[in-house]
């Protein structure tokens, strides 16, 4: 495709005093892709997202979203993005429905109530719609948070550590939502410190380390960076997550991507099938 990339970052730098957070980040995200920005705590993932979301000014370099420069055309950038931050940014005093209506009204959309009802149904929040968000569980808050981000169908979605602090079931729900969005053509840039999350969701993975992107590619491409795998037979033990989900018996569907074997089917990577 020759269209403008959804996100284009060149030589992005940001320091706080002497502390260099970003030392020249380059990253291109094509339209419709799901890209995971992987890095340990404090690697600068959130800083990248905040710059892209026009919440923070970079010291140097350029960043453009949908062809709009974040520094000089912030309003156009805000038209085409939605940010889901590290903590669910919901109004606890309002009800779930009121939260959605508020965002739809601020985006000047017709029929905010109808939009709210649709999203409530889609995110299984209809029953709780009239309750104050303060009474919601962590997973419900996150679902509402993501629902609020989808209002107005922004073509580019930033998810900053969307599953940090969630229980396994909520985590799977969030994953399913992200996959649905990707299938609908939304470009997603998500940051995560969980390797399996990047593996599950992303078309491409970019590793942010020491203020730079040190690796960027599909999972297969990244795997090729390692020495060729040798075939070994290892006994596959269930992960604690699988045990937990089997015992509580409340396991939501996990529609995995057709182009990739599901995580449960493949040998335990951490076990070292190299």
């Amino acid at each position: 495709m020759t269209t403008t990339p959804a996100i284009e970052i060149t030589g992005l730098t940001k320091s706080y005093g002497d502390h260099v957070v970003l030392a020249g980040v380059d990253l291109t995200v094509p339209v419709g892709a799901v890209v995971a920005l992987l890095g340990s705590n404090g690697a600068g993932k959130t800083t990248v997202v905040r710059i892209l979301a026009t919440l923070l000014r970079a010291d140097g370099g350029t960043a453009a979203v949908h062809g709009h420069d974040v520094a000089s055309r912030p309003q156009e950038v805000r038209e085409s993005i939605s940010l889901t931050g590290q903590f669910a940014a919901v109004d606890e005093v309002l009800t779930g429905r009121e939260n959605l209506v508020l965002v739809a009204t601020l985006r000047h959309l017709p029929d905010p109530r109808g939009i709210a009802e649709d999203l409530l149904a889609r995110f299984a929040l209809t029953e709780a719609a009239g309750r104050r968000v303060a009474t919601y569980s962590g997973g419900m808050r996150r679902r509402l948070d993501i629902a609020m981000s989808l209002i107005g169908d922004p073509p580019v979605l930033f998810l900053d550590e969307p599953t940090t602090g969630l229980d396994p079931q909520s985590r799977i729900e969030v994953w399913r939502t992200v996959r649905e969005l990707a299938d609908g053509g939304t470009t997603v840039l998500l940051t995560t410190q969980y390797l399996d999350e990047a593996e599950q969701l992303a078309d491409r993975i970019a590793i942010l380390h020491g203020g730079r992107i040190i690796a960027d590619g599909t999972l297969d491409e990244l795997e090729r960076l390692l020495p060729p795998a040798t075939v070994e037979y290892v006994e596959k033990r269930p992960t604690l997550e699988e045990i937990f989900l089997a015992i509580v018996g409340d396991r939501p569907d996990r529609p995995d991507r057709p182009d990739r074997p599901s995580q449960t089917d493949r040998p335990d990577r951490a076990g070292g099938a190299r």
């Binding site: 919440l55 805000r78 993005i81 940010l83 931050g85 903590f87 940014a89 601020l106 609020m148």
Partner: peptide, 13 residues
């Protein structure tokens, strides 16, 4: 502190 401020700031308003 709850992040709503940043949500509003990243919206086209």
């Amino acid at each position: 502190s709850g992040g709503l401020f940043e949500r509003f700031q990243s919206m086209p308003i």
